[in-house]
Computed example of a mutant assay.
Amino acid sequence: MKITSISTVVVNAIHRNWVFVKVQTDQPGLHGWGEATLEWKTRAVLGAVEDLAQFVIGADPRRIEHIFSKMTKFSFWPLGSIGMTAVSAIDQALWDIKAKDLGVPAWQLLGGQVREKVRVYTHMRRARIGAQVGTADIGAFCDAVQETVEMGYNAVKLGFVPYSGYEAPLPDLLHVEKLAQAVRERVGPDVAIMTDFHGRPASPEVAKAYIDVIAPISPLFVEEPIQPGNAIAMADLARRVNCPLATGERLFTPREFAELAEHRAVAHIQPDLSHCGGLTGGRKIAAIAEAGQMGIAPHNPMGPVAGAVALHFDAATPNFVIQEEAVGLVPWFDEIFSHPMRLVQGYWEIPDGLGFGVEINEAAAARHPFKPEIVPALEALLPDGTIANW
């Protein structure tokens, strides 16, 4: 069997362009899908996929580790977020092809099923464009959270913390404290709450100030309390707060996750399987986390291929905790994609279809072509005009 071509399909989803990668083989009807969505870097990722094609076309798609090595080692330069996103999507498509060729769900190739269902969480109102509520009106914010839970979720991730620099003003701290307590009172103790700082605090001290006022509501974790990449600072922060921490969506290599494990810097890691090397990279990272006694809560606010890949990974990963999902992000989600994500009482069911069980209606996808995305990060300014971390 040989790979004959690699093509891409771009679908505009307002805040991001979903980038899907299709790997075609010389076997009639046998192809695989991967997802290379990287917010606001669409054209760069498309170029990286094209650059990597020379290492892949003509190879046997079932030699996944071999092809992964060709893409990463022959590239010579460190691939970074753009290159690793392209690698990840191609890698995912190879797993899809191999599972289809063997006539099994992809999770069978990852060691087999280790759980009966996969716990998931979503964002406020499933992160639907135009449906978000700011933090200023606490009552309206809590109404939206309650509405989200009533969609069938028992876990939700929220943004409590404002754009921050090297200071946590007392009025902001008091408001975040009141907001967090109001959300907990509204949803009760049976709903898991997570909060994403997005690395907004510019120092561990600012992060600690906000974590201290949120910790009493017992969040499942606080995500990216500081910018990623400094495992020592994260570990120091973890030892000074009474709350589990998580990070990893902006880390790409096993070495970076090994540093977190070495310092036991967080309770949970959050690799994104569309950025960290696909399933080939994700499996190595999960093993590192398990050795470091850390849970794994994969990042995924993207399209259906990334969701399906994560579902199969979660079904076969022993130290999995909870999965981020974005099914229904746009109203025409199910018009373009057939996918295996089925929500039942806060969990996804384990799929039994071949490969990832996802297919894209390319004709329908063409109705939503590439457009320059809306970039909400442009709003990230402090009161004096300083650019903040989004």
Rank of each mutant, 00 (worst) to 15 (best):
M1G: 07
S5G: 12
I6Q: 10
S7D: 12
S7H: 07
K22D: 09
P28L: 02
H31M: 04
E35A: 07
A36H: 05
L52V: 00
V56Q: 14
P61R: 06
R62I: 10
R62G: 13
I64T: 11
E65L: 11
H66C: 06
F68A: 07
F68V: 07
K70H: 13
T72S: 11
T72W: 05
S75D: 04
F76I: 08
L79A: 13
A86T: 00
D91A: 06
A93V: 13
I97T: 10
A99L: 07
Q108F: 07
Q108M: 09
G111I: 03
Q113R: 15
H123Q: 14
R125I: 13
Q132D: 15
Q132P: 08
T135H: 09
I138P: 08
Q146A: 13
E147M: 14
E150D: 15
Y153I: 04
N154I: 01
L158H: 14
Y163H: 13
P169R: 05
D172E: 14
L179E: 02
F197M: 09
G199M: 06
S203A: 14
A209D: 14
Y210A: 06
I211T: 00
A215H: 10
I217R: 06
P219H: 08
F221K: 06
F221T: 01
I226V: 14
A231E: 07
A235T: 11
P244L: 01
A246H: 08
A246C: 15
T247Y: 13
F252H: 11
P254Y: 02
R255C: 09
E259I: 11
R264G: 04
Q270S: 03
D272W: 07
S274F: 01
H275E: 05
T280P: 13
E290S: 08
G292V: 00
G292S: 02
G295N: 03
A297V: 13
H299L: 06
N300S: 14
A310S: 15
D314L: 05
A316G: 07
A316C: 10
E325S: 12
L329C: 10
V330T: 15
H339M: 01
R342Y: 09
V344C: 07
Q345P: 01
G346E: 00
E349K: 09
I360A: 00
E362D: 08
A364S: 08
R367C: 11
A380T: 07
L381S: 15
D384V: 02
T386D: 10
A388I: 07
N389E: 12
W390H: 15
